[in-house]
Computed example of a mutant assay.
Amino acid sequence: MKLKILSLAILLGLFGCKESAPPEIDTNTASIGELSAYIETNCRGDFRMHVRCMNAIDSKRKKSLAEGRAQKGSLGNVRSEAELFGK
């Protein structure tokens, strides 16, 4: 009986304690570098389409676009994305 319980505990320890989700990240305050590192380390395999990963990817995209628009000589300085694409 004790052997069965011990072997069950070992099996649960080895296979039953997988992470069920990537860790949380505050996408509003995270920099582009932090978001890139988060995506690189946490959004692989099964977690690639997880909500937290999708939010991090979307936030990184938006921040990269905003940073590009803020650079001198960018067309984004002249017109907004809504004006350029009619959204």
Score class of each variant (00 low, 15 high):
K2Q: 13
L3P: 00
L3G: 05
K4N: 12
K4G: 12
I5H: 11
I5Q: 04
L6I: 13
S7I: 15
S7P: 00
L8Y: 06
L8P: 01
A9S: 15
A9V: 10
A9D: 03
I10N: 03
I10F: 14
L12M: 11
L14G: 07
K18N: 15
S20G: 09
S20W: 05
S20H: 06
S20Y: 02
A21D: 15
P22W: 08
E24Q: 02
E24A: 11
I25P: 00
D26C: 01
D26R: 04
T27W: 02
T29L: 09
T29I: 12
S31A: 03
I32Y: 07
I32F: 08
G33D: 14
L35M: 08
L35S: 02
A37E: 15
Y38Q: 03
Y38H: 03
E40W: 12
E40H: 06
N42F: 11
N42G: 01
C43H: 02
C43T: 10
C43E: 07
G45W: 11
G45C: 14
F47W: 13
R48V: 14
R48G: 02
R48I: 14
M49K: 06
H50P: 00
H50M: 12
H50C: 05
C53Q: 04
C53L: 12
C53P: 01
C53K: 01
M54R: 13
M54I: 08
M54A: 03
M54Y: 08
M54N: 09
M54Q: 10
N55K: 12
A56M: 07
A56F: 01
I57K: 06
D58A: 10
D58N: 04
S59N: 05
S59D: 14
K60C: 07
K60D: 15
K60A: 13
R61I: 12
R61C: 05
R61H: 10
K62E: 15
K63I: 02
S64C: 01
S64K: 02
A66H: 01
E67A: 02
E67P: 00
G68Q: 09
G68D: 14
R69F: 07
Q71F: 03
Q71C: 04
K72L: 08
K72H: 12
K72Q: 14
K72C: 14
S74I: 09
S74Y: 09
S74M: 02
S74R: 04
L75S: 10
G76F: 06
N77F: 00
N77G: 15
V78R: 04
E81W: 06
A82G: 14
E83V: 04
E83R: 02
E83L: 01
L84H: 07
G86T: 05
G86C: 10
G86K: 07
G86R: 05
K87P: 00
K87G: 05
K87W: 14
K87C: 08
K87A: 11
